[in-house]
Design a protein around this nucleic acid. Structure first.
Lengths: 218, 218, 218, 218
DNA sequence: TATGAATGAGACTTCATTCAT
DNA sequence: AATGAATGAAGTCTCATTCAT
């Protein structure tokens, strides 16, 4: 990242190259993982040659980082914008965020990113930290905010927010991650719609202020 | 470290080498992933030389496969045995299986295996299939059986078992997988005990036959 | 090619570019050597882009050759002019040539050129020949002429001129070459003035016609 | 698949390998310089493959350093040993050291090393420092010791030892360096023997205590 | 059974050079 | 005349794999 300063921005704007490369990289990284991805494949898919990648990214790792930055972070930001402007109930916001996440990530090649990060986090501590802070933590903050909103509004019981947040996200994350990993092994498929419906229903039921009387959760 | 089974020492000596290698491989693979693992590191940790590995395993991939086979499947088997001999309520069995899984996998280096599989499944379709069938599906069958047992006994509502099974497992799997991946990024730590407690509580509450009146889940 | 250019002011501009490039090349080549010099660095220092270099020089090697031609040869010519017009004693001419060489080459970035040639001569036989003939031989001829002049005038003993010439030049050349190479390693510095003084004194003493009586040198 | 050509993979003892590689490296580096040397060429000349080099040397630079260490430093040590055990006059010791240096370095492929160092010193500051300290400085100390010995014995005038040392060495160094660089350009050859004779004679005469009466050099 | 020296295919990365604008 | 995007050959280095001992 040393020369990020020198790279004139208009060059990016004017030329679609970096975006094309990142887009190609997303496909290949998502398919094969970090180490097994050959830059030549990325280049070919982007319609350029190996050398061109190095005009825009310092090395493979930098490309990987840019990919994460440019693709996943915006999804989080979109969710934050939605939450900010949302005027309905916390339940509805919860449901909408969950479904939106699946629409944007779970069912696109972006789903490869969480899997990649889980796979490579330990080998790229610096990137892992970036991702954890800019995506995971931020995502948790977003979801945590929804829960607090519901608690304040009396829709949700006063649960332990950090834990409840993790439990709200885990089924989403795992479905995204495992589905892309084992897609080829699930000929019967995976009824995502019903999975989501059920998660939303069970989860909202679980933290709803109106149904419980005997919870141990604090 | 695999299971310290108590058996006559000299007798096992014959098989000790491959087991030592697999044990070393578990540590290294779990730490670094498949591609980033050097056989030399595995060898060193096993106290042998690279060449020796090839006496027992055809190649790196075969070692990886053996590792998966030898370490994870027994955990499933143990769970199956527990379920078979269990005489208490489905709720208690559910709780015990969940906690046992965490004890055996989530908090040992075995936790690296699911992460590895998720990372590499697409690059090793054959291994992915093996894992999916011998671990994932079998795990689901085990958990699904518990749910059915509870439904039959009138403890649980008659939910869609496959979906409910996945929703029971996802928080476990995700916690195991994400925790090892991002361990270094979570200085605050992760209160696993409370996470488990809450999951068990919320989940059992959600499918309990006695509390719900308005569920959309079928 | 646009013709009908309005010339006046831009006329010198036309030749300015190659000179600027050569000047930049001198700095970079002298600093880093041939292979380690990137044309991009030369271009940047010349205030142009890489492509521009190729408008004036066929390739890196041609630039290198032009650099040698344009920078060093004039120094020789200047020495030749001095010798030609010099009217004093051979001793004084010798001293003046030595000091002038150091002033023009030894203490400017031109000192990088001999070092470069020594480093790369074997990789560029054609250039080496050019340099050897246009610089080394010509320099030797110049210095040899001085010696012969002194011998004829009875100032110097009738030594073996080619050998004596080489011995006159070697300390100069080596000082120039080694000083730039190891500049960073000589914190104590190198008293060039005294080095030159001593060389001149010892050398002139050695070949002086008036002091020796027992030399084996012929 | 080539049919079972029985090519013994390693005939020699492990111990010999590094030396063989260094020996091959000397030839190639001396011929082409550092950057222009391909490790594959070194390998081929050593009768091994590229990879083998990396068993013994961390990288190209390390090989280069080892080469310097193993080849030139011993020459210095030999000179030091000679000086230490020498019982004759300082003049004779001087002469012997000069001739020995030429025999061991100037007329073997070791002569490529000084040239290499001069060429690459600026690009490898760390190596330059090593060489400067272990070779240049040590060589100067050796020669300076001889001069001091002669001064103490009344053989030499009380000259400025550091300067006189440099002037004693420069013709040697330059001859070694320039000869290998321009060997191909000197069809007439270079009468090394006479060059050395004359240098020794002139130099010894110059610092001799018995001949001078008018020196400016102090 | 075990070793460890040796291999060589393959990946990343660099940079001189080209060419459309 | 000048640019700057693009190329692709070439070199360093890695490491799974082999095999004589």
């Amino acid at each position: 990242m040393p020369q990020a300063v020198v790279k004139p921005r208009w060059r990016r704007r004017k030329n679609a190259r970096p975006e094309e490369i990142i887009s190609a990289a997303l496909e290949v990284f998502a398919d094969r993982g970090f180490a097994a991805t050959k830059l030549e494949d990325v280049a070919r898919r982007a319609g350029v040659t190996k050398g061109t990648i190095y005009l825009y990214f310092e090395n493979k790792e930098a490309l990987f980082k840019a990919l994460v930055r440019e693709t996943i972070v915006p999804v989080i930001e979109q969710g934050e914008a939605l939450a900010k402007s949302f005027t309905g109930s916390a339940r509805d916001l919860f449901e909408q965020l969950v479904r939106e996440y699946f629409r944007l990530v779970g069912e696109t090649s972006l789903s490869g990113i969480p899997r990649l990060m889980i796979a490579e986090a330990r080998n790229f501590p610096q990137l892992a930290r970036f991702y954890y802070e800019e995506v995971v933590t931020r995502g948790h903050r977003l979801m945590g905010g929804v829960l607090e909103r519901g608690i304040k509004a009396g829709e949700f019981r006063p649960v332990n927010v950090p834990i409840a947040t993790k439990l709200a996200m885990a089924p989403l994350m795992h479905a995204v991650v495992a589905r892309t990993a084992f897609a080829a092994c699930m000929p019967e498929g995976f009824d995502v719609a019903k999975y989501l419906d059920t998660h939303i229903d069970l989860y909202l039921h679980g933290i709803s202020a109106t149904h419980r009387t005997d919870s141990r959760a604090d």
